[in-house]
């Protein structure tokens, strides 16, 4: 059968993340927040991060609505981000995200998978309150080390 095994989108591991997501909700004392949607399908992801004084992601939470892929991918990404230094988060590329998700996705569904990744990357630059922040602003070397941008969105 063509859809068995680890290529299958609707495999146990992914459904687990979809139905019992990791850190779905509000992040206590979030320092960085961003939200975006994918207007083509209506998927929306909201990410809240708490980044500590050393520039590490202390806590990563998401909320949202959408297909199994977008929501499960967000859950996997939150789990992955916690403990990472923002320098490494910025180097975590779209390709890395697709690899983290695991199942083979057509280009159309890749954008479902990459929505949370895109939101999280933008969240790094979206402090809740610019005045009172503990997060280290990106140095120029960190900024240039950021991964490639998300693939362009196709037309309807």
């Amino acid at each position: 059968m063509a859809f068995d095994g680890e290529q299958e989108i609707y495999q146990e591991r992914i459904l687990d993340h979809y139905e019992e997501p990791y850190h779905r909700g509000a992040c206590p004392e979030a320092t960085h927040v961003h939200e975006d949607d994918n207007p083509l399908c209506g998927d929306v992801i909201h990410v809240e991060l708490r980044i500590n004084a050393e520039g590490r992601v202390d806590a990563a939470w998401f909320d949202g609505d959408g297909c199994c892929i977008s929501q499960a991918a967000a859950s996997m990404l939150m789990e992955k981000l916690e403990g990472m230094h923002i320098r490494d988060v910025k180097q975590f590329t779209a390709q890395d995200m697709l690899q983290l998700f695991g199942a083979r996705l057509t280009p159309n569904r890749q954008k479902c998978c990459l929505l949370s990744w895109r939101v999280a990357q933008t969240a790094l630059h979206s402090p809740v309150d610019a005045a009172g922040l503990a997060s280290a602003p990106p140095t120029s070397s960190q900024a240039t080390a950021a991964g490639p941008g998300p693939p362009s969105q196709e037309a309807s």
């Binding site: 609707y10 998927d43 297909c67």
Partner: peptide
């Protein structure tokens, strides 16, 4: 409980081609 894209992807596995999304009618949705 199932997003339209997941529905279309799953029925496609059975060979059934249906549309999922807003069908170029966002205001109606």
């Amino acid at each position: 409980g199932i997003h339209a894209h997941d529905v279309a992807q799953l029925v496609d596995q059975d060979g059934v081609a249906i549309r999922a999304g807003h069908h170029c009618a966002m205001p109606l949705h």
